[in-house]
Design a protein around this nucleic acid. Structure first.
Length: 409
RNA sequence: GUGCCCGUAGUUCAAUGGUAGAACGCUACUCUGUGGCAGUAGUCACGAGGGUUCGAUUCCCUUCGGGCACCCCA
């Protein structure tokens, strides 16, 4: 064998392996997302992780595409990018079937997304994100629904109101403010980024003055639209909402309400979800304009949040019963397993010839709730000692009573 | 991509310019048909590569990975 470089055991930088216990948590998070989204009448869609690079160039700008995405040229010479976000894809899909879709549209997806960045806590190169969007509703009622959907998902995870805060702002109001200040396009962009950092940087006032040529002192009351939104949310019992006049969000395509949700515990400094209204996005595909509002909700920050507040469920494998066997009884054990599987029970059989104590130990370590042993006694009597490993209790049952005994747990 | 910090058994940690310890875990036995407790024995590591040195896990460089800040935040 030729000498080869030792292969790394670690997952690729900024990505995660999901061992069964990790996947269990991932499934739990996805499950809550899906359950609540469907409860609000949202339909699930998906698409390829690959898109033509132009899709992102059109709205994100060359810099983001070339420096912060996984992009390559395929063998046919096409510029391809692994999707860094879902919104352009869903806007494309909506635009493509603009004429045959019936609006309003409520859609959700749980795509994995990739960005080429230096990983940090809460921010990896691959992550999954719940995307919920409403298309074709211009009124504030869509803003109300999308935020209450997000709020109900937090409730679905067991979060308390004091654990998180939803910050609101309005891009239209912000732009109005910028116009009043007489800022040109370029200065607006620069100043918007500065605003986004206010609170993080100590010399905000000086920097603001450098851009504006004068001190920054604006009226920081909520605009009319945001006030109305907050009132409507309050009526729904959603009160952990604050007006955040410096909330900007990075993308230029937002046209109205923007929002983000933060953990109130500073160990998780990144937003769990964020989104806003983008009424002009579908229109850039050259079809009749369709308004939209939605959010993206990351799995990484969510997991950190749930760990912080001890809200993760206890691991439970899908296997309900582990069948052990004595020498020469593996065949009988498999037969029993086969019968039970036909009735819909998840059963695993120990395939080794180890001592029964070892077999039981394996079941226990795998958190399998029930175990039974097949041996001479059982073969003769047709009765099984079914043991609940959590309670340490045994019941003696006929084969036909095994299933009902499993359900007692 | 830039700067700074970090990288020791499976895990959490310790020590040291002369090749490393603990706890938990894991394996076996005590226990010839039932795990969790206990006892005994055993097992496993200096992320990788190069340099300085008589000798490096320890110092230096590179690289890989993680964290923090910047950047950006989809």
């Amino acid at each position: 064998m030729p000498e080869t470089k030792k292969l790394s055991l670690e997952p690729y930088k900024g990505t995660r392996d999901f061992y069964p216990k990790d996947q269990f948590i991932q499934n739990y998070i996805f499950g809550v997302w899906r359950k609540v989204a469907e409860r609000f009448g949202y339909l699930e869609y998906n698409a390829s992780i690959l898109e033509e690079t132009d899709l992102y160039r059109a709205k994100s700008g060359e810099e983001i595409v070339s420096e912060q995405t996984y992009s390559f040229t395929d063998r046919g010479g096409r510029d391809v990018t692994i999707r860094p976000e879902m919104t352009p894809t869903v806007a494309r899909m909506v635009a493509q079937k603009r004429k045959e879709l019936s609006f309003p549209l409520r859609w959700f997806s749980i795509p994995n997304l990739f960005r080429y960045e230096r990983p940090q806590r809460g921010r990896l190169r691959e992550h999954w994100q719940l995307n919920c969007d409403i298309f074709g509703v211009d009124s504030i009622e869509a803003d109300v629904e999308i935020i209450s959907l997000a709020y109900e998902i937090m409730k679905g995870f067991g979060a308390k109101d004091e654990n998180f805060v939803i910050k609101l702002n309005n891009r239209r109001a912000l732009n109005r403010l910028f116009s009043e200040m007489g800022l040109d396009e370029e200065k607006q962009k620069t100043f918007r980024r500065l605003l986004d950092k206010k609170g993080k940087i100590p010399d905000f006032d000086e920097q603001a003055k450098a851009i504006l040529g004068k001190p920054f002192n604006a009226n920081l009351e909520p605009d009319k639209e945001t006030s109305e939104l907050m009132q409507k949310l309050t009526k729904l019992g959603i009160t952990n909402v604050v007006f955040e006049p410096f909330l900007v969000r990075g993308f230029d395509y937002y046209t109205g309400t923007v929002f983000e949700m933060y953990d109130t515990n500073p160990v998780n400094p990144r937003a769990l979800f964020g989104g806003g209204r983008y009424d002009d996005l579908v229109g850039i595909f050259g079809v009749e304009k369709v308004s939209g509002i939605g959010f993206g909700w990351g799995d990484v920050t969510t997991r950190d949040f749930l760990e912080t507040y001890n809200l993760l469920p206890e691991y439970q494998p899908p296997v309900k019963l582990y069948i052990c066997h004595l020498e020469n009884y593996l065949e009988a054990a498999n037969q029993l397993a086969s019968d039970l599987r036909k009735q819909g029970v998840n059963v695993a059989v120990d395939l080794t010839s180890r001592k029964v104590s070892q077999q039981v130990k394996t079941a226990d370590k795998e958190n399998i709730p029930f175990v039974l042993v097949v041996g001479e006694e059982e073969a003769k009597s047709g009765k099984f000692k079914l043991k609940n490993l959590k309670l340490g209790k045994e019941v003696v049952v006929n084969q036909e009573n095994i299933i009902s005994s499993l359900q007692i747990s």
